Simulated scan of single mutants.
Amino acid sequence: MVSRRSFIKAGAALGLTSAVSSTALADKLKVKASSGEVMPTRGLYNSHEMLPVNRPGDSKRYRPLSRMGLGGLAAGNGFNTISPDEEILSMLHAAWDSGIRYFDTSPFYGLSLSERRFGDLLRNKSRDDYVLSSKVGRLLTPSSEPLEKKWHWANHSPFHYKYDYTASGTRRSVEDTLHRIGVSSLDIVYIHDLSPQNSDMGEDWVKYYDEAVKGAMPELSKMRDEGIIKAWGFGINTPEVVYKSLEDSDPDIFLLALQYSLLDHEVALQKTFPMIERRDMSVVVGAPLNGGYLAGRDRFNYDSTIPEKMKQKYAAISNIAYKYGIDMKTAALQFAEAPEVVSAIIPGARTAEQIHENVAAMKVKVPNDFWSELKSEGLIVQAAPVPNA
């Protein structure tokens, strides 16, 4: 693992830092990062630059102030056991100290583990100083028996869950989350995993959607009107519910995971984003690194099977990035944050070092010619918004 202390310093008087390490130069960033390691950030960046924010008043609907957030899947032992808890707490403190002020979690992540770990940081902060979102749709119950289906979670909390998108289940879920995190309120609540991609539901996702139309959706609108929350929407991995919900309800924001990235963005740009933008709603981009693939992991969208097309596209973009003195992760994070309809991106992290690299990536000056070459080579669509445009 490359330590940030090994980075070459340049242009100190201007606050510019070169994020190219000698190791990265030697292997041209082609070594895949193993769990907990990082893809070194390449390129000149201004270490004093603030992370991007949304300007108040740009939208009538609520948007988180911070455009750079933190996803909580890893804090729920997603794919790997993180022990002791101090490693996650160190990561969370690094996020806070780096200027990240939007935190997203879920009861499902580690079956309460992520929420409780986030609470170790956030319950000691002023509630007005950060944005917090969590999710509804599963109610947790204690159990001494392990889950039959393990999902992504390594050594998760001893809970079972049941799907519940009713009004009463939704309000109870929010109250349970507040107790687990140890805070007084949530800013955003997402209705979670109503999607045909959710193999746990199968075709029943339509039944649960209909339950949410009568229960969770009006209840969250009521909670918004009461001032209990500031916004609500859907946290989903496929866009079908976006299209349906715009006819049936009045959400504010969509957490779209695995739907907008440097490698895969056509459907979102051509169909999903325009539908959302016309209604002054916004998008939080989840998994902007395709579940870690664009940061060097040997998995794509939380799956160990990597499509050959994605491998080829990765290699082509990586070679162009190296030519311009930057890295894939930097290009991917800045690409995902660029559209106006996007109100935040929430890459995950397991370690403080990963936080430092992600934050540095947002401050790198990416040459305009890099984006032009990607478009000329057909590696991103011509209409894709890019930074510095």
Rank of each mutant, 00 (worst) to 15 (best):
M1Y: 09
V2M: 11
F7M: 14
A24M: 13
L25A: 15
K32M: 14
G36E: 07
P40I: 10
R42K: 12
N46Q: 09
N46K: 13
H48P: 01
D58R: 07
M68Q: 04
G69R: 02
L70P: 09
N77Y: 00
I82P: 01
P84H: 10
L89S: 13
W96K: 04
W96P: 01
F103S: 03
D120S: 15
R127Y: 03
D128N: 13
D129G: 07
L139C: 06
L147M: 14
W153M: 00
Y163T: 10
T166S: 15
R172C: 05
V174R: 08
V174I: 15
V174D: 09
Q197I: 13
E211M: 14
E211T: 10
A212Q: 05
A212P: 01
V213A: 04
P218M: 12
S221F: 05
R224Q: 15
K230D: 12
G235C: 12
N237V: 03
L246E: 11
D252C: 02
F254T: 07
L262T: 13
L262S: 11
H265P: 03
M275Y: 04
A287Y: 00
N290P: 00
L294I: 06
R297Q: 13
D298M: 14
N301A: 07
Y302S: 00
Q312T: 11
Y314F: 15
G325W: 02
T330D: 06
L333R: 04
A349G: 06
E353D: 15
P367F: 09
F370A: 05
S372I: 05
L374V: 06
V386Y: 07
